[in-house]
Amino acid sequence: MELTKEKLLGFYETMMTIRAFESKAVALFAENKLPGFVHLYLGEEAVATGVCANLGTKDYITSTHRGHGHLIAKGGKVDLMMAELFGKATGYCKGKGGSMHIADVDLGILGANGIVGAGLPIAVGAAFASKYRKSDAVAVCFFGDAASNRGTFHESLNMASIWNLPVVFVCENNMYGISLCQRDHMNICDISDRASSYGIPGITVDGNDVIAVFEAASEAIKRARRGDGPSLIECKTWRQRGHFEGDPAIYKDPAEQQSWLEKDPLPRLAKRLIELKYATQTELDQIQASAAEQIEAAVKYAESSPLPALTDVLTDVYAG
């Protein structure tokens, strides 16, 4: 796929939609309108956007507790997402799951997840199903730097490698697992180094550069699709907010935070678009405004939606 003007503007739109959704969530949480835990993707938009731009509806993703960006980039509907954050009957999970459990199986989104590292073997299973059915669908697994210390990471990479499965492991290295920075939770700098233990390709890219992410993912996904097996992509990025809303993140060095804010993926892409003359500042402002409008509409939808019926507690436990 060539990086056409349309493609790059599409990236910008997706990233702006995620940014608008998450910024709105900050405000709504502060107003006490969102119950439960809300983990935001602000600052990491380029990763989901660059990866999912290579995927179709038939492809699978597994997401994390920090999943809003993955869902939007894979085509999730922001009104249904917002209604779920509000715990409304019209939400993606009828109000039963909340932010940490949004899924859209029809779009190949096998769910956000409250258990760190749980998505890896599930993605392996989706890739197995694809190979079993001789489909060319691939599975992409998003997970964090700290998740790569769980046994599921190691077991999944090994299993995917020996079975040569069409799965791409995308590590979002935002350098922290809650309060613990990467150097305190592992002994290596590049998580992509772990790929060599399983005999699969591993690459590290600038996760705040959507083009770099797109290109690395494009290669790994093509490889998986043509039957050449799994790979690991590490995207170095930064979570701009606390671990969840309400966490002041005092464990982070303000200077480090500042230096990463300067590497914010959105202004970086905007600059690129203007340099390439693919858009004017006015056009970019319009994209931003329309993303904000879309999110406002989603909030209206959520706020005016009904609460679940109390009898809903008992439904959906078993199929059939």
Partner: peptide, 16 residues
């Protein structure tokens, strides 16, 4: 509690 997972929405959780 009923034999179900714990629901998210506060109204459902209170009913649970």
């Amino acid at each position: 509690a009923p034999d179900t997972p714990v629901p998210f929405s506060p109204v459902l959780e209170q009913a649970y």
